[in-house]
Amino acid sequence: MNILEFTLLIWLGSLVAGFLGSLTGLGGGVVIVPLLALAFGVDIRYAIGASLVSVIATSAGSASAYVKEGFSNIRIGVFLEIATTIGALFGAFLAARAHTSLLAVIFGLVLVHSSYLSLRPRRDLPGTDRPDRLASRLRMNGSYPTPEGIQQYYVHSVPAGFGLMFTAGTLSGLLGIGSGAIKVLAMDRFMRIPFKVSTTTSNFMIGVTAAASAGVYLTRGFIDPGLSMPVILGVLPGSLLGAHVLVKAKTAILRIVFSIIIFLLAIEMIYNGLTGRI
């Protein structure tokens, strides 16, 4: 296989990964890294470098569509980005030192968790009417449009959310993924932020978080132009298309299928990590 064929195949794979990633809300990164590492035999450090850049591209590319709807909350985003960016720096420094087998095993475990999360039904937990003291002081409470009119919401458990965001950032920097699933988990399960607000705010945060580890990856030589080029040119249109289809399609069956694929990739990553093949 020469470079031209290799590039075209990776482009096609990334297109599909981006499409499925945005359709299921898990992001393209969780598929790109195993795809490159397992199917194409790419060293996992090059794979996470390429994936990370595509994560920034997807986040930035879909932001303009999300902003118009008026769901995202800038204050929540910026405040929690303190935790995610510092976590991402930490994760990226770890990635530069950790053994590749260890990276593969951790990646596999995160995949198992993602496949579980993608099967879980999404619904808003009932929020309380009582504002939380810290969240009010940080002016995080907001409102968002619903079919029944403008709905007010109150944010809770800021310290717990902040802690979980640090973990999300570390995993993002360590594995080159957006870790949007954990960000959303922190915001809608712990902080009781309405689902629409958490997903769109998370999308903004993913790009900033990824940028915090991107600099480390770049200076350590993880980001290869020849490999990243087909990855971002595939993931970007794929994920924008996925977001477009998402509005119309019923994704229940697709989520189950995707969840099974991710679970299988997880087993494969863990096996290859444990046997020292990655």
């Binding site: 020469n2 470079i3 290799f6 490159l36 035999g41 790419v42 060293d43 090059y46 590749t100 030589g221």
Partner: peptide, 12 residues
Amino acid sequence: GAGLPDYKVFTG
């Protein structure tokens, strides 16, 4: 394009 891809071993 006609060359061979080489990403198996990480050299940075």
